[in-house]
């Protein structure tokens, strides 16, 4: 499986050994993002980096684990509940001038979204390249929920992230 190096900019302390060990100059870029066109996946940089800031990632991701239908139904219900709570918290935050209530509701809305994201991930939407994700995008492009649905973004995603089955 072909791999390329990616640098975690948050961990990278800049300006050290990866520049010297790369046989193709892929690590030497002005924006610190490793050039995937040049990278040949030799792993030299990842092994040399003193900050463990470089990982080798596959160009193609493995297929997603299949999910049980009943489990998905349960998880969808849970996600809906989290989504309702997020919406409610945002409505309360939007309608109050009280500082504690405002911040508490904003915090709760953010938390609920993270919870719902985690649930949706386990409900069959782990990989952006999965067939499930593709099917949803396709359906949305065909039957947009409202006229202002950003179909261009959805189309671009289908193009950039090939369905891995």
């Amino acid at each position: 499986m072909k791999r390329v190096a990616v640098r975690n900019l948050r961990l990278c302390t800049k300006d050290c050994i990866c520049l010297y060990v790369c046989p193709t100059g892929a690590t030497d870029t002005e924006n610190s993002i490793i050039d995937v066109e040049k990278c040949i996946g030799c792993e030299n940089c990842a092994l040399a980096c003193p900050s463990s800031a470089i990982s080798m990632v596959p160009l193609e991701y493995p297929k997603q684990q299949p999910k049980d239908d009943a489990m998905v139904a349960t998880l969808n219900t849970l996600a809906q509940s989290k989504a309702d709570q997020e919406k409610m918290a945002l409505q309360i935050a939007g309608g109050t001038s009280k500082d504690s209530l405002y911040r508490l509701m904003k915090a709760i809305a953010k938390s609920e979204r993270i919870l719902a994201e985690d649930v949706m991930r386990e409900a069959g939407f782990m990989l952006p390249q999965s067939h499930n994700a593709h099917a949803i995008l396709e359906e949305l492009i065909e039957t947009p929920p409202t006229p202002d649905f950003p179909a261009e973004a959805a189309r671009k995603l289908m193009e950039n992230l090939p369905d891995n089955g």
Binding site: Q80, A83, R113, A116, E117, V119, F125, P128, I136
Partner: peptide, 15 residues
């Protein structure tokens, strides 16, 4: 639902 799709899409963004 829209709420579920919002979380689905922001989850895939994180992915």
């Amino acid at each position: 639902s829209a709420g579920q799709l919002a979380a689905l899409c922001s989850n895939l963004a994180r992915g």
